[in-house]
Amino acid sequence: MTPLPSPQQLRYLVALADLGHFGRAAAACAVTQSTLSAGIIALERQLDSAILERGPGKRPVFTPLGLELVGRARRALAALAAVSETAAAARDPLSGPLRLGVIPTIGPFLLPRLMPALRRAFPRLQLWLREDLTDRLAEELSAGRLDLLLLALPAALPEAETLRVAHDPFMAALPEGHRLAGEASLPLSALGSERMLLLEDGHCLRDQALSACGMPGAGDAFAATSLHTLVQMVAGGLGVTLLPQLAIEGGVLAGASVVLKPLGTPQGRELGLAWRARSPRAEEFRNMAPTIAQAISPAGAEAEASLARACALETN
């Protein structure tokens, strides 16, 4: 029988691929650099195949086979982790650590009211948060470093299951005194002649705003890094934009001289959850969805604010 690689060898391999440095990979695996190097060499001998190119450079360079093995090692480690997760989920559902990834156009505006709601609904759950762009969160999910994502759908999520939890409408944001500020609502055609301000490439909200306005191109080359910056650019008279209702309710307009107008043809984005297909915790995630949907809704926002005010009064 062909000897199988050990889980530790696979961890060495994945850490080296992720960090691109023997010393940092060894530190991440809590071993010495010589131990990690010996583990990789032993794996090559065991498989009778070259995983790394041997050369003068210090940075590890993977062979084509090595890159394929890294991908298989990720899946194998995720499958091993699922064994423990399945047992834990059966013993005590919705408890223990949960690594949640959230995109920047959701996190700052939803988490202040979502976290208390989740703590009340699932007191034994230990949430670890990671905020990043969709593409990087998808990589983290696929690699098993995240368990669940909260993001805008649709998204490129290979081998993931998704569940829609809420619709997030868009509002047009104009600077005070803008020629369209007196309109009751704005047709999308009116925005087409305006300078549309957008987030930087990589933010899914950028593509959604372009799609809502029927703009095929990338728009203005000068883009904002966050919704807060985008709002300040609008307030400064540089152009107009579309803002999600979630961010508006979350206070993104605080102190800004911006006028909001509904769109004549309603537009918006779909918010949802994503997890690895065949995850043993899939049913837990589905059970969490109503709590998350309630927190996103305007009624949920008001309920959380009322509860916070009541708690403040009791404290005083």
Rank of each mutant, 00 (worst) to 15 (best):
P298L: 01
L4K: 14
E53F: 11
R45T: 06
A293V: 03
A254Y: 02
L273V: 00
P298I: 00
A82G: 06
G23R: 15
G39C: 13
L47S: 01
K58D: 08
D132T: 07
L114H: 02
A172L: 05
A27C: 11
A299M: 07
C213L: 15
F109E: 00
P5S: 14
Q267W: 09
A42K: 05
E314L: 15
K261H: 13
A166W: 03
L100S: 03
R136Q: 11
R120W: 03
P7Y: 09
V234D: 14
T315Q: 12
P108F: 00
T241N: 07
L246D: 01
D135P: 05
R120S: 12
E68S: 06
L133D: 08
L19I: 08
A121W: 06
M196R: 12
A121E: 13
L210S: 02
A312D: 08
R45C: 10
L151C: 10
T229L: 12
I41H: 14
E194T: 02
L273G: 03
L151D: 04
R59A: 14
A172I: 04
A277G: 09
R286E: 04
E249I: 03
A121K: 11
M196P: 14
L110R: 12
M1G: 04
G264T: 08
A305G: 12
P93E: 01
P280M: 11
G272C: 05
F22V: 12
A277I: 06
R59D: 03
L153I: 11
M196K: 13
G300A: 12
A138K: 09
R195A: 13
R120A: 14
Q8W: 10
L199Y: 02
V259N: 09
R195N: 15
R281F: 03
